[in-house]
Design a binder for these strands. Sequence first.
DNA 1: AAACCCGGTTGATCCATGTCAAGGCGGCGG
DNA 2: CCGCCGCCTTGACATGGATCAACCGGGTTT
Lengths: 217, 217
Amino acid sequence: MATLEDIKYYRSFEPGQTVVWSGDRMDFVASVVSGIATLTQTMEDGRRQMVGLLLPSDFVGRPGRIGAAYDVVAVTPIVMCCFRKKPFEDLMEKTPHIAHRLLEMTLDELDAAREWMLVLGRKTAREKIASLLAILARRDAILHNTTGRRRLSFDLPLTREAMADYLGLTLETVSRQISALKKDGVITLEGKRHVTVPDMGRLLEEAGDDSDGGFLI
Amino acid sequence: MATLEDIKYYRSFEPGQTVVWSGDRMDFVASVVSGIATLTQTMEDGRRQMVGLLLPSDFVGRPGRIGAAYDVVAVTPIVMCCFRKKPFEDLMEKTPHIAHRLLEMTLDELDAAREWMLVLGRKTAREKIASLLAILARRDAILHNTTGRRRLSFDLPLTREAMADYLGLTLETVSRQISALKKDGVITLEGKRHVTVPDMGRLLEEAGDDSDGGFLI
DNA sequence: AAACCCGGTTGATCCATGTCAAGGCGGCGG
DNA sequence: CCGCCGCCTTGACATGGATCAACCGGGTTT
């Protein structure tokens, strides 16, 4: 019997390259091996909203669906591990624990999306920026096994404009709020793309999170 | 072997009653039989964001999770069909098509959540109201098998405040924008809670949707 | 090295929505 | 029937973030 190993193949993309266009037929599912991509929705008049970040280990695509619901764009060089949809679905039919695992991942994504709805609907610009930095710091910490530390340092993978699209702001506001957080000592910057958070607790306070944002795992 | 029929039972709630509190242990999963409930997240300082609407046929609860992630509150009298979690999970283990169906429903919810992120992050107050009305009209049309009609009429199940919490607005802004849509002939009101949409296409334009919002099924 | 471009910063001003406050309407209990 | 209470509307004013515009710095092209 075929296994996941048998039907997988790899694809890579350069920064800025669109992996899938919203509405396109998408005949594969994939998981991110390395690099970062964004999921974005666009309105006719050009307004854009990022609805998800794809980081290593994240899954893209929906078994049982034909069209993609949003654009997927690489923001760094990215490698994805792909499975043609049909064999993947057949395999899923036969091995229930794959479906099971997929359900779990989808529920996680749903939780993340709903948490982001709170950010978009109710947080101030400063809180939005702090929330985003906290998430990026956390994902980076998990990737490098440095969870639990108070002080963290990581690269910002997104341009100011991409951050704005994620947060429902303009790039000017993003720039100003980052400057403000820097002035207030919540973060320090080396260059424009490397962030150090001297005190993660402080950042989470600024994010307005009642929880620890999953930090103290 | 036990079936879904064997392990189900019913619970009902009155308007305003909280079905589950965020963080509570939730030892059942359920689907809505009749009535409406909301999923909301709350910040320490009281800011609230609705992250989902539960309408008849919707599913609540996550197999494999213990704590609820948000408050579930009844807004009308509601009847839910419940399954204790353990037997449900056992059953899911044995009957893959339940897991399969659940995955599909979760993917739908994820799509809806992401569409809502666009509403929250990028739409104006007027567009937000129009979007919400369009969704409610659609759900109502599906419920009463009146899809495809141009003219629709339905009851608003939500208070202005609940609408505000859904849309990331204040209740005053909601009130003003509803008045504005009425003045402009996009909707008419009989009383404060019954809406007629003379031209669904017009409403969808006002919502800024590039698609038909799933109307022309 | 000059010219240019891209991403970012900063300033000045504008405006959509929030905030605060007053009142209206309809239903319900006394 | 009256008065109260929840829900809603409307007005006046305040403000956070958008918009418009100038400029910066570093990398790349000519």
